[in-house]
Amino acid sequence: MTALLTPGGTHAPHHNQALGLRFSRLGRSFGSPEGKRIVLQDVSLDVRAGEILAILGTSGCGKSTLLRTAAGLDAPDSGQVLIDGDPVRGIDERCAVAFQEPRLLPWHTLRANVAIGLPRSASASTGKAKVLELLELVGLDPFAALRPREVSGGMAQRASLARALARDPGVLLLDEPFGALDALTRIRMQDLLLDIHRVRPTTVLLVTHDVDEALLLADRILVLGRGSADTQEGSSILELIAVPGVRPHDRNSADLGALRSTLLSMLGVTGR
């Protein structure tokens, strides 16, 4: 199959479909001055191709570590991550990450920053076309020639998202990508994410500490945390909840209201 046969002719042939992902008995600990600190313990989970999975948990529970192992940025001590059945070894071309901070190269224009995300296999001309298309998708085409410091935080974050999409990832990993944005911008970005997911369905893992965001965007919500107060124990899956209804979920529905209370109490917040 050549790129010419795909609609629009701008997609790398092998990455443009959503891929399933499996965490298999994943364990990770870090050495610290006080000794070994177990972060993740025995995490096993199947993420379906094309679904949006939100990962919720208190800070320090290992949400980001879980995401980083999927990206190949971190290696687990035990267990493995499988994407489409193949284990992740090192940085994986099938994944793309957007971080909490935009992490754009300050000396490049937004256009050049988005182009960093292109897969190596992309030719110059298809790459250029794809970058243009993505800048349009995230509404940055009038600002393509600006540098990151010349645009707002929300725009920088959109560029970061476009950079991740430039890979045509089978799995899109989002590490609290809207956490640092103001409330209005966050709502716009959440809508944008759903729009993008409609246009190019891909598997999304979204780490967040915002229960409402998880309820609004996700098909399923994974709650990560320690089973007991024992700090010697690592985090594992506390709960995996399917969110009823169709996206974007109406957060005023009674079902979600009950779910919201459940999730909050799981995260240690009660009486709201």
Partner: peptide
């Protein structure tokens, strides 16, 4: 963070 972002996009 920039270096990590670079690595995440396959730069090495």
């Amino acid at each position: 963070q920039l270096v990590e972002a670079g690595r995440a996009f396959g730069l090495r």
